[in-house]
């Protein structure tokens, strides 16, 4: 049987993954602001309410804590809510319910109550947006025990990862790189590639390893191409999962290349990148030829849109770090 491979943008792949999850399990519910007739502000849920009805695809009141808090109650009642937070910066009204309630609920019940809740969060910059619409808050959640945190970077990964996240009996923060919603890619509609929490080598190389996630992956792959033109062989790894992090491919890569640069759109201090730098230093110290370097946004609030290309790491900043690492 030939695989069912279609070319589509991540937005459509997520829509297809959500449709499949809704169709496969009557306990799956979508909840969020404007996700019904409008299909969400990014149209990820387009057509789903028409297909599954307003009890399965629920336009909620405009209150993030209310969305997460009632999702917890629905999960206690046997449902599998998938909550859409409209933009990254709007997750904080729900932060208490996520970190103090959702993340701890199974632990407080000593495993007798599961919390199969997915919280979808469009995140990141590069769309020229206003304040609170371009942030990368994933580290807050990766820092919180009890949550799982993932972020796809391609349409295909988005398609299978959203289904795996919904199938998980643990709460999953699902960060969607909104600047990557529209570029198209091939999606194998029959394939579930890997476990949800697996990183992937997306370009093989021998001299230095680049690690990132989400929208940063396209920057890293472009950087690797530019570095290759200048004679440097770069390996690129897509984290896909931020909590837990699948370190085996990263450590194996660093043992081969001896050099690591970690890049992300978030501010660098106390970041996912910092965590990776620390862990790789612990696990592959004798393989390292250079210090692990971070390429990140600055420790300043996300600036007005006209400054975002200066604030966010680009290929030039990644290559500057590659050059510094190669100089050791």
């Amino acid at each position: 049987m030939t695989p069912n491979v279609q070319t589509m943008p991540m937005a459509k792949a997520l829509n297809a993954g959500l449709r499949k999850a809704l169709g496969d399990d009557p306990k799956v519910l979508l909840m969020g602001e404007d996700i019904g007739p409008l299909g969400g502000v990014f149209r990820i849920t387009e057509g789903l309410q028409a297909e599954f009805g307003p009890n399965r695809v629920m336009d909620t009141p405009l209150a993030e804590s209310g969305i997460i808090g009632t999702a917890i109650g629905l999960a206690m009642g046997g449902y599998r809510p998938v909550c859409e937070i409209q933009f990254d910066g709007f997750i904080f009204p729900g932060f208490d319910q996520i970190t103090s309630q959702l993340a701890k609920m199974t632990n407080r019940h000593e495993g007798q109550v599961a919390m199969p809740i997915v919280i979808r969060v469009p995140y990141g910059g590069h769309i020229g947006a206003v304040e609170h619409h371009q942030e990368s808050p994933e580290a807050y959640f990766a820092h919180t025990p009890g949550l799982r945190v993932v972020s796809p970077s391609t349409p295909h990964d988005a398609y299978w990862m959203i289904q795996e996240a919904i199938a998980s009996d643990d709460p999953v923060m699902f960060f969607e790189p909104k600047s990557r919603y529209w570029p198209k890619g091939e999606v194998n509609l029959d394939s579930h590639d890997a476990p949800l929490h697996s990183s992937a080598v997306v370009r093989e190389g021998t001299e230095i390893t680049l690690v990132g996630h989400g929208a940063m992956m396209s920057v890293l792959l472009a950087s690797a191409e530019l570095a290759a033109e200048e004679g440097t062989s770069v390996e690129v790894i897509d984290l896909r999962s931020l909590s837990p992090i699948d370190y085996a491919p990263i450590v194996a890569s660093v043992q081969k290349t001896g050099r690591l640069v970690v890049a992300a759109e978030a501010p660098g201090s106390f970041s996912v990148s910092s965590e990776i730098a620390a862990t790789v230093t612990e696990r592959a110290f004798y393989s390292l030829e250079a210090p692990v370097l971070r390429v990140s946004a600055f420790d300043a609030p996300f600036p007005p849109a006209k400054l975002e290309t200066t604030y966010l790491p680009d290929a030039d900043r990644v290559l500057e770090a590659v050059d510094r690492a190669m100089a050791y």
Binding site: G69, A71, L74
Partner: peptide, 8 residues
């Protein structure tokens, strides 16, 4: 809120 969700 959990109570409300459970009632929903």
């Amino acid at each position: 809120l959990h109570a409300t969700g459970r009632a929903m």
